[in-house]
Computed example of a mutant assay.
Amino acid sequence: MGFSRRARDVGVAAAILALTALIVARLEGETGQTITGIARAADGDTLTLEGHRIRLLGMDTPEMMQLCKRDGVDWRCGVAARSRLAEFLRAGPVTCRTRGKDKYDRWLARCETAASGDLGERMVREGLAVAYGDYEDEEQFAKAERKGLWGSEFDLPQQWRRMNGRPQEVAHEGERGVIDGILARLGLD
Rank of each mutant, 00 (worst) to 15 (best):
R70F: 08
Q168A: 15
L67Q: 15
A114C: 00
L19H: 08
A80F: 04
G133I: 11
A18G: 13
G117P: 06
A109K: 05
A129Q: 13
G51M: 05
D102H: 01
R6V: 14
T113K: 00
F141H: 12
A91V: 07
G177A: 01
K143S: 03
R162Q: 15
R99D: 15
L186H: 00
L89R: 14
Y104W: 14
G11N: 03
A114H: 08
K101H: 12
E87K: 05
R166S: 04
A80K: 05
A14V: 10
A18R: 13
I179K: 00
E136R: 12
Y132Q: 06
R90C: 02
L22T: 12
D43N: 14
I38S: 08
V12G: 01
V73C: 02
C111K: 03
E139F: 07
T48I: 11
G58T: 06
L57R: 06
A109V: 04
H172V: 02
H172L: 12
N164Q: 03
G133D: 08
R26E: 09
M1N: 07
I38M: 03
D74Y: 08
T20Y: 14
G151M: 10
R162V: 13
I16F: 09
P167Y: 11
R146S: 10
L27K: 06
A18E: 14
L56R: 00
T31E: 15
G165T: 05
E169Y: 13
R70E: 11
V79M: 05
R185K: 11
T48L: 13
E145K: 13
E87A: 05
G133T: 07
I16T: 04
M64S: 12
G181R: 11
A86N: 10
E153G: 04
D134A: 15
M163F: 09
K143P: 01
A42L: 14
S116A: 11
R55A: 03
G51H: 01
